[in-house]
């Protein structure tokens, strides 16, 4: 952690609730909640509505806690990047201690409530995902290595597994494959973004792959990662874990992903303004994950 030379005008004012909400990174949370919900709905047995709702709420609160702790730790880095400079801490609208207490409080509360409402295996997985995101990704890997996203991606891959375990109380092959899909999806998703905001990362001293290894290498890696990701995304169908609705949707969606990754591979532009293929892949990757998990749930509902 770097000590605080941030604007302190807000230090005497109580934080506005909208800024507390912004600390939780609501947009990131929506994908986390959706994948967690799909993991739960894909399970062979569903919990009572109140317990299912609580499990998803806990996943959301845990993700919110992670977001707050991430922003608390990276406040000075955020201040150096255009994309993040207007967040509550770098903009000086909140003091750091509030963000720390808020993040720790949300995280602890989410784990305890998950354990009490569903089962302690789901709570343990939630705790591991939070600790992994904060300590392994944010504190250890992100400022040190270009592989930060590769290993750190595991943190974002937990929600469908947690959703499944909250419903069933056990870990099975399908949720592990869902974990693997998000794990392999994360590097091309973030590397596509980091290509067109490369100067931001360089200015903040974050060793993202395009900053450390160059643009051409990153484009190759994006394409290479999209291949095993596509294979793992389709795998549940031939393995007999899902039906053809998911299998066909996964095949078509993954083909689109690989095609867009190929367009990134052949692009030679170095200026962000000419990185349309990278921007397209980044936007598509978000839709891809929503659509893939949506197809999984549709497949389950049609099978019942």
């Amino acid at each position: 952690m770097t000590s605080g030379a941030l604007p302190s005008q807000a230090a005497t004012l109580p934080a506005d609730w909208r800024d507390l909400l912004a600390l939780t990174k609501p947009r990131v949370m929506s994908l986390v909640v959706f994948s967690g919900l799909c993991g739960m709905l894909a399970a062979p047995l569903l919990p009572p509505l109140a317990l299912g709702f609580t499990a998803i709420l806990c996943i959301a609160l845990g993700a919110g806690g992670c977001g707050a702790l991430n922003q608390w730790y990276e406040a000075e880095i955020d201040a150096k990047m255009r994309r993040t400079a207007r967040r509550p801490l770098p903009a000086g609208r909140m003091d750091r201690q509030t963000a720390l207490h808020f993040g720790v409080g949300l995280s602890v509360f989410s784990v305890l409530l998950m354990g009490l409402a569903t089962n302690w295996l789901a709570a343990a997985l939630l705790a591991v995902s939070i600790l992994f995101y904060v300590f392994v990704y944010t504190v250890w890997l992100k400022p040190r290595t270009a592989q930060n996203i590769v290993i750190g991606g595991a943190a974002g891959a937990f929600p469908p597994l947690i959703g499944w375990v909250a419903a069933t109380g056990r870990i099975d092959t399908l949720p592990l494959l869902l974990f693997a899909i998000i794990f392999l999806w994360t590097p091309p998703h973030f590397w596509a973004l980091s290509l067109f905001v490369r100067s931001d990362y360089a200015a903040a001293g974050i060793p993202m792959l395009p900053v450390v290894s160059g643009i051409a290498h990153t484009r190759r890696q994006i394409f290479l990662y999209s291949l095993p990701m596509a294979a793992v995304a389709v795998a549940p169908w031939p393995m007999g874990l899902t039906g053809p609705v998911y299998g066909i949707a996964a095949g078509v969606l993954s083909l689109g992903f690989v095609a867009l990754a190929a367009a990134v591979l052949v692009n030679r532009a170095a200026e962000p303004a000419r990185m349309a293929p990278e921007k397209r892949l980044f936007a598509y990757s978000v839709i891809y994950l929503f659509a893939l998990f949506g197809a999984l749930v549709a497949d389950r509902l049609l099978a019942w």
């Binding site: 919990p47 109140a50 317990l51 409402a117």
Partner: peptide, 9 residues
Amino acid sequence: LLFFITIAK
């Protein structure tokens, strides 16, 4: 929420 969790349990 606690009320409904209790009923579900």
